[in-house]
Design a protein around this nucleic acid. Sequence first.
DNA 1: ATCAATTCTTGCCAAATGGCAAGCCATGAA
DNA 2: TTCATGGCTTGCCATTTGGCAAGAATTGAT
Lengths: 192, 192
Amino acid sequence: MKENLIAFLTTSSLVTPEQAAEIAGHFSFREIPKNAFFLEEGKIANNYLFLEKGFMRVFAHDIDGNDVTTGFAGPQQVVLEVSSFFNRTRSQENIQALTDCEGWGLTYDELNQLFHARPEFREFGRHILVKAFTTLKTRMLSMITETAEQRYAGLLNTNPAIFQHAPLKNIASYLGITDTSLSRIRKEFSKK
Amino acid sequence: MKENLIAFLTTSSLVTPEQAAEIAGHFSFREIPKNAFFLEEGKIANNYLFLEKGFMRVFAHDIDGNDVTTGFAGPQQVVLEVSSFFNRTRSQENIQALTDCEGWGLTYDELNQLFHARPEFREFGRHILVKAFTTLKTRMLSMITETAEQRYAGLLNTNPAIFQHAPLKNIASYLGITDTSLSRIRKEFSKK
DNA sequence: ATCAATTCTTGCCAAATGGCAAGCCATGAA
DNA sequence: TTCATGGCTTGCCATTTGGCAAGAATTGAT
């Protein structure tokens, strides 16, 4: 039942299979139907989620009120608004299900209890945070050094599934361009 | 002697002044002369630094070998290449002193011992990591939603000291533009 | 003091991206 | 079925940014 969660916990090799099974025991099943919000801006994130099925989109609003996609999440990934969750502050971001989603979750209190009781899960938690940070740094570097077309090609390569679930305008803002430009880039790209 | 470090540890209010004094006791004094490298790409980051005086630049190289500034550090900040330090992997980034620097440092082993012995320092460590992550997310959002001129104005506002220590071409790549464009933006900006 | 290297600016032009509006297409609701 | 909505593309043109090269200014080394 929780095989995927257990497997995920052990991949880092910071947690043994036995430990993973016990840790997984504390997670509860969560369903988020399509279009429902896992987190709404203005609220304090209280849920840590291991996403097993489905896709989600993370987005914020810029000064003019425009919708800006800051991230996507897919199966076998942790979904978490780090800042709001750990600092207990109001989130500036929304997390919405692009498709029907299923996964395993912890509340803030549950996670802290588990961090306290399970040093290896604490290490695992740090590992996840470091990974998210590294991923974001890589994305920042690609934002600085690559053209929009290169970033598009990169996303198509690393996360092709997103194109089947998110509208292009969301993908465009994630890439830092307008939907108009993305459309043109796709046209050029398909010629090659 | 270590007042600044102690004050820094207590600002988060995760560490009491007494605890901070004891934690600070484990840090050793570090000097990095101007232009020296605190970390070189290809090596494994082994030093955690609280910078007390001076400025540093973090940079990587893109595919064409161009120098890209990914960050700056100034007084009262932690200097750390998170990914290499925690994963014990070779760094893709360099950290170089822009001016003569002084601060207080821990090695990887020292930090881990302290994390183990001092839960409050562990919490503090997480707090620093979360803050760095949040800062980077904000920067990513500004990269997507703001013009180069707005980003320039923002940096001038939040970190004016950098302009006295780093050459403009470094600041340009940090902002995601060429030095030519930055020069023009500065010209326009000074008219206002 | 001199020379070399680096930094910064500027002019010229090209390339990349954006803004807007129109139109087409697919989807879902009534 | 019809209608309304949202998603995607496209044409036209404006704006932003880049590439390159030249030159001035600054810095650093000898």
